[in-house]
Design a protein around this nucleic acid. Sequence first.
DNA 1: CCACGGATTGGCT
DNA 2: GCCAATCCGTGGA
Length: 204
Amino acid sequence: MNSLLNQPKLKRNFFTLDVLTVAQSLLGKILVKKSDGNTYAGKIVEVEAYDGTFDEAAHTFIGKTKRNEIMFAEGGFFYVYFTYGAHFCCNIVTGVKDIGTAVLLRAVEPLIGIEEMAINRFGHHLLNEKEKFNLTSGPGKLCKAFDINKKHNTTDLTGNEIFILKQRKISADKIVITKRIGIKKSVELPWRFYIKNNPYVSRK
DNA sequence: CCACGGATTGGCT
DNA sequence: GCCAATCCGTGGA
């Protein structure tokens, strides 16, 4: 069924490039999580870049703290945080060591483990096509669907639990660039990227 | 110790 | 379109 999954994992050198390059390169790649006998996989369709060196919206703009520490590691680690008293969001740390940059995963297109994602999100099996589009079309939603939580913070993405599969590069004319969503600082930076016309993007 | 606000979501008007 | 829910990280007293 899945030639998409028959691809090598991205290695360290993919993630250690600068955050804007990695953000756009991640579009179209496959996020995979294996745990407790379940396998989840989805195509990354929407991301945002955060760069604490001058971006006031980045969690690392205030410097290193216990919460954001992993963002200062070299690229290829998972940064998971909890927000609004209810939701987890997951990021992929980028760049060289001691630079606080990361890419927020905002939406994926579900590929593998869809029924389990529905259980995680809604507590029941998929009822209709509409629910499928609501499974992973947002940063909090995709973490719920993939059962990603605080214990996955600092996970090494070159390991075997959570990783990303290489895929063909998405051409520039298929990438839409906009301002980021849901932030109050540095709102003008055009650092949100999504795949044009993909129905799993959180919003236009 | 206490106060404040958030890289969101879903339900109600 | 508007807004409450809900709790943890952060910083100031």
